[in-house]
Amino acid sequence: MGKGVAKFGGKSGILPLPRQIFKQPIKPLKIEHNPNIGYAPDVKHPRGSTREPIYPKVVPVEERIVKTIAAPKRNFTEEEFGKLPIAQQWKLKNSALRRDYLKDSYWKEAKRLELKEAREEEAKKKLEEEIKKAQQYEESTASKLTLPSVEQYLKGPIMRQRTEAETKELQAKRKLNLLNHELRLKEKKAADLLELYNASTQFIITEEQLADAVSKAFDTNSSYSSAFSTTQTFKSLSSTSNSRVSVGNDIDTAIANALLGRVNGGPDLNDVKDTLHGETYKLVEEAGKNFSEMLQKDQQKYEKKYKDN
């Protein structure tokens, strides 16, 4: 804060604020209850303090006058007053004058405060009115005539929300997509499983099969087996697997599989599905029936021919 003039921001000649004549309010205060101040219902207040704030006691002007400017205990008549010594007379006169002045100043201060309050009230009302008037804002004619569409656009919602029917349609579409995706996944899984199942016929699961496969792989068709010949065979095997012949074979197998509807030499997924649903059985039955009918017809034909001859 500083000392001397530093206390007043470096400015000298600033008079102190005049002392208040009425330290207590002279009329009841308008206290608005603030819900954000005080203690919550379930919170205890500290011992020695009060739960509610203590407001200053109201001392009306009349009460103050009675308390501070008490009338003299003894009233002198004019005759008695004349008999008093001069100094005493002046003392009494001064006291009466001081009492009158103090009383007068109290009433004047009360009047000033009232006037000040009225003036503040009026200013507040005026400002409120001004704000209210300013908030009833009307756009200029120019902007009204030139920018109606954009202003109107800003008043309503920018985007039209989906209607109930559109929402339902979207939900149905999403559900369909999900189901399609799931179906595709399941089909792929089933096809992979089938491929694995068909390939499992080639798997080596016994010792004999392993020995057989090893001997087949290293078979040199020669009576002697030397390190040289083994290496040769190994080289030839590896070169064959990388050659075009092998690729050609792969392609041939793939084409054959695709034409015959087979996977790894076994039935493909459609075949399995048909079998499971009884389609193949029906087809075989129908073919058998047709075949027997055809045989019967042929037999009848031959019999007729034989009879005619």
Partner: peptide, 15 residues
């Protein structure tokens, strides 16, 4: 992008 705030700013700049 079309948003309410952007439109308001654009309108203010236009005015």
């Amino acid at each position: 992008p079309l948003t309410r705030l952007h439109l308001q700013v654009a309108l203010g700049l236009y005015k």
